[in-house]
Design a protein around this nucleic acid. Structure first.
Length: 419
RNA sequence: GCGGGAGUAGCUCAGGUGGUUAGAGCGCCAGGUUGUGGCCCUGGAGGCCGUGGGUUCAAGUCCCAUUUCUCGCCCCA
């Protein structure tokens, strides 16, 4: 083991992997542009209260997974554990709502959570997400969900499950909550320890419990969908209607409860069977009160986030070949001192012509330079020796066909460009 | 926070019951061509056997601790 390794739960994305990541990010940017979402970049850390007050004190993330530290100014700061709250903070701080009726934003950034690492779960992970602020129209719920589905399909995840639920609003959720508590009251001492806590603090999360006994006990529990107020049930019906029209399959999952307290109405998750236990590749929901809670005016919103790490892993498992560009156009091999000097200049001028070019800087033999060129997947090797320099030409070898011919220096860039 | 598996060359892994200079394949470097890649042949470099302690005449091998990775619980992306 080397003396220094990447900290637990973090990892290096090496040059062999980064083209894939760049490709995924660029597809995401393209689709966002297509749907008119604009990029926003927010700080890596925020004031701790932004998260503690808005994600929910009792959520796992806030209660035990945040990277919180006291800065020199004696302020408590936290590395962002999720992407939405910072975007909302920026939206409110800069009063973006005053400029446009609906602000459609996207971000690509790292999130940090102190969790036990396992397959598809890291302490630092990259999240891509969108937030649409300013509209309560169910059509925008459908837009956000379809943007996500579009993205997954475009990059090659053809099979996924879209789980959908509505978790109501402050109008109807308290009544539902009460119904659930009444239902669970008699069984609370048979529930698992965490569910007993949930019963007290956040009963809805009991629905989400994976312990078989709890699941069994909660069979027949009242469903949120039966308790939605008129507004929420109408909204939910319309979202489903749009998704159906869009041809996006979904599964209604009454037990789907998201991890943060700010969600209202629509909640959804994208699940892929390829991954292990960490099978959620993306998710999101509506948060009609979050902007006000962060200090802005009454502004409805909806968003979703997806984990790039998990997506990359899913694509690997699926064996999806991404159209990543690799290899250079030209490798210039210089022979001897004179050849090397000439190569330095030629490489520079080919690059100025926009031709991806590289050369050797370790004084290797021609044979060794050819091997390097091959490894770099160079389309052509341009050989410069004394003979070529004297004749003001270059020997150009086509590495695919092994054909080789002499090209006047003047025509070289043009010849390589046409390739 | 809890439980299972694992840590030997850059990578993937061998190294019965403890016993001399720790091996292979791939990769890397060089040679087989006075200036030519992929295939092949030959040679070479490269290991505090995760770390610390213990048992022993002797530890990669046994014991303990620790750390990292890994898989699962929980939660989520």
């Amino acid at each position: 083991m080397p003396e220094y390794t990447a900290p637990r739960g973090t990892r290096d994305i090496l040059p062999s992997e980064t083209p894939k990541w760049q490709y995924l990010e660029s597809v995401f940017r393209d689709i966002c542009a297509l749907c008119d979402y604009k990029e926003i970049r927010t700080p890596t850390f925020e004031h701790t209260e932004l998260f503690t007050r808005n994600l929910g004190e009792t959520t796992d993330v806030v209660s035990k997974e945040m990277y919180t530290f006291i800065s020199r100014g004696n302020k408590s700061l936290t590395l962002r554990p999720e992407g939405t709250a910072p975007v909302i903070r920026a939206y409110v701080q800069h009063n973006l709502g005053a400029g446009l009726p609906v602000n459609k934003l996207y971000y690509i950034g790292r999130s940090f959570r102190y969790e036990r690492p396992q397959a598809g779960r890291y302490r630092e992970h990259t999240q891509l997400g969108v937030e649409a602020l300013g509209s309560a129209d169910p059509a925008i719920d459908a837009e956000v969900i379809s943007l996500a589905a579009h993205f997954f399909k475009t990059v090659g995840v053809k099979q996924f499950e879209l789980q959908l639920n509505s978790i109501g609003c402050p109008e109807c959720r308290p009544a539902y909550r009460k119904a659930l508590v009444v239902f669970a009251e008699a069984k609370v001492d048979k529930l698992c320890a965490t569910c007993a806590t949930r019963y007290e603090q956040n009963p809805l999360r009991m629905l989400d419990c994976k312990v078989p006994e709890c699941k069994a006990l909660l069979v027949g529990a009242p469903k949120m969908s039966d308790h939605l107020c008129e507004d929420c049930s109408g909204h939910f019906a319309k979202v489903q209607g749009y998704l159906t029209k869009f041809g996006i399959d979904f599964i209604l999952d009454p037990s789907l409860v998201r991890g943060f307290d700010y969600y209202t109405k629509t909640a959804f998750e994208f699940v892929s069977g390829e991954l292990g236990a960490q099978n959620a590749i993306g998710g999101g929901g509506r948060y009609d009160n979050l902007v006000r809670e962060v200090g802005g005016s009454e502004t409805p919103g909806i968003g979703f986030g997806l984990g790039l790490d998990r997506l990359a892993m899913t694509l690997d498992l699926l064996g999806v070949e991404l159209p990543v560009r690799d290899g250079i156009t030209a490798f210039v091999a210089g022979l001897g001192e004179v050849g090397h000097e000439a190569a330095v200049e030629l490489v520079r001028s080919l690059r100025m012509e926009g031709i991806p070019t590289d050369m050797d800087y370790t004084g290797r033999s021609l044979k060794a330079q050819m091997k390097v060129a091959n490894k770099l997947k160079a389309r052509y090797v341009v050989i410069l020796g004394e003979d070529e320099i004297r004749a003001v030409v270059a020997t150009v070898r086509d590495m695919k066909t092994s054909e080789q011919n002499s090209v006047p220096m003047m025509d070289l860039a043009k010849a390589l460009k046409g390739a």
